[in-house]
Nucleic acid binder design. Structure first.
Lengths: 320, 320
DNA sequence: TTCGCATTATTAGTTTTACTTATAATTATA
DNA sequence: TATAATTATAAGTAAAACTAATAATGCGAA
């Protein structure tokens, strides 16, 4: 059960193969020739077969040696990778940092986040298209980090840190009628302005409505949240949105009214997602900055917009 | 430069994560709780950060711990794989052994090889189609071993052991004329019976002819060597072949005459090819058996057929 | 709070392993 | 056959991995 292999002797053997002689391997590793000889002999004893044919000079690898060398040097490569992933010097500038963000986040928190982290990378590439914020972009290494609500990260081998949580709510045009209507009444009165189902956001909203058995008439379907909110603002109907989305579209949307949805609140969670080979300090630093920037620059504006949301927006609990 | 990682402490950490507590990990590894505690503390010191958050109970992994755990358990998996590739108990039967062979080998040496190795596997799958003897079949793991002349193994990460080497020669129908003709005269007198270019063998012959600037008329092209030799035997032309191919087609081909080719002899090398993760003892045992079977059962027949070939057929030097 | 329980940390001593120095043995080459 | 280069072996030392025993910590219950 206990494995006989240890990295030190594997490293010594690989050095011996690569340097062609044990003596040179010893030099490279800062050891005596004797140590190398003993380490390789021990390896051979452990695996029960010769790795090196010493009956000829220069010594040649046996078949066992050849196969083992391939696997071993591959293994050492992975060890180096794992080591690097836990100690990267963050005082040095990264040459390039590629990060994807859902567009509502990119337009609201994004600038503050980049400003705060400016010193960690010489060059930034911030992408906010739908394609660049799907887990696929991360898997295909088009981006290194991602702030997204796509929660399919748990199906893959990725690190995901919760950054921000915000409720969905109902957005309607301002009424001139003095009496307040409830969310339900509004939903009956006017048509739904829909998001395109090609976005994760749109599918999330659809799922919510289906779950509630709400099948409102929908004559309008648009593929950017700006356009959706502009329609609402023009009095053409209502929609479902989250604070960041509304914040982003403030200019184009003008005046809007926000109503809480009844029942258990549907929330959207934004995650910082990264490959698990990514350096940990770096992940943590980005996560911290993203949380801070959101709290500092957006939460106050959100609460001004809809005070009843107090306690519903914020940072979700850490999962690990 | 020298890496701080060692497999033992990685193993201990992984056990601790998987068993949830250090005490249980100690039990699983047959250690004291103290050893586990110390090993993990040492790891944390080496990488300069906490892996486990002990301020809460049950203890939770930190982010660093989470990322490290993923990489670490992956690494351990690869270590086990590497270990297994060098110690497989050949006294136990393999459940299934899939081996591809070029058809001339399968038909001549094949049966003797299988007979000799019968005890190593419970079930055999011997494949000799063109597709099953190309390196691709090995890369796609449709077969575990392969005896082939396809030499593209050096482009991939494969083990290749030379098994047998044999010269190409000219095959012509028996003449009734008492005077001996030279190979060149024969090639001028009669048409070439060609192998289909879809086989590796056919392409090899084509390359040879092109290199020699030989562009003989070829009216016949056939896709099995049996058919080619049957044509030759029927007096329709000449072809180029190797001993094993002729041996294989003896029955269908009847009487044939073999002439050496002039100039540097073109040889075909047969290799035993396998993934380098394959067990070494197994590779070596198959290679040895294949060589023996060829020498014992085919070389004598070849030399009876063409005594001048003495010294040109045999086992090439070992490369490692 | 205070106690008991479960877990982890620390200390000191022991065993094992990794390494060095010095010397012997092996192989290739002149 | 000597000699140059390389590898192996023996004996001793330093470092590490581990154990046993005990102390410290966090949690839940009275």
């Amino acid at each position: 059960m206990k494995s006989w292999m240890n990295l030190r002797s594997v490293e010594i053997f690989v050095a011996a193969v690569e340097e062609d002689t044990m003596s040179r391997a010893a030099e490279r590793l800062g050891l005596t020739q004797s140590a190398v000889s003993q380490a390789i002999a021990a390896l051979e004893r452990a695996m029960g077969g010769q790795l090196i044919d010493r009956a000829v000079r220069p010594a040649k690898l046996t078949l066992l040696g050849t196969t083992f060398y391939k696997g071993a040097s591959d293994l050492l490569g992975r060890v180096r990778e794992l080591e690097q992933s836990v100690d990267l010097d963050l005082n040095k500038l990264l040459p390039l940092l590629r990060i994807g963000m859902v567009d509502s986040f990119a337009a609201t928190v994004g600038p503050h986040l980049v400003k705060q982290l400016d010193t960690i990378a010489a060059q930034w590439s911030v992408m906010s298209g739908v394609n660049e914020t799907s887990i696929r972009a991360l898997m295909e290494r088009r981006v290194d980090f991602m702030i997204t609500s796509d929660n399919s990260h748990n199906q893959f081998d990725l690190i995901a840190i919760p950054i921000f949580e915000e409720p969905f709510f109902l957005v309607a045009p301002p009424t001139d009628a003095p009496e307040e209507k409830t969310a339900e009444e509004l939903m009956m009165d006017m048509p739904l302005i829909r998001y395109s189902r090609s976005s994760f956001f749109g599918r999330q909203v659809d799922a919510y409505l289906r779950e509630r058995a709400l099948a409102p008439q929908h004559r309008y379907e648009l593929d950017t949240s700006d356009a959706v909110l502009a329609m609402v603002s023009a009095g053409l109907g209502w929609t479902i949105a989250t604070p960041l989305v509304v914040l982003k579209s403030m200019q184009s949307a003008g005046n809007l009214r926000c109503y809480p949805l009844n029942g258990a609140p549907l929330k959207r969670k934004l995650w910082l997602v990264a490959q698990h080979t990514e350096n940990v300090d770096l992940i943590e630093r980005i996560a911290t900055a993203a949380r801070q920037a959101t709290i500092q620059h957006c939460v106050p504006r959100i609460l001004r917009l809809a005070p009843w949301m107090q306690g519903q927006v914020g940072i979700p609990d850490s999962p690990y």
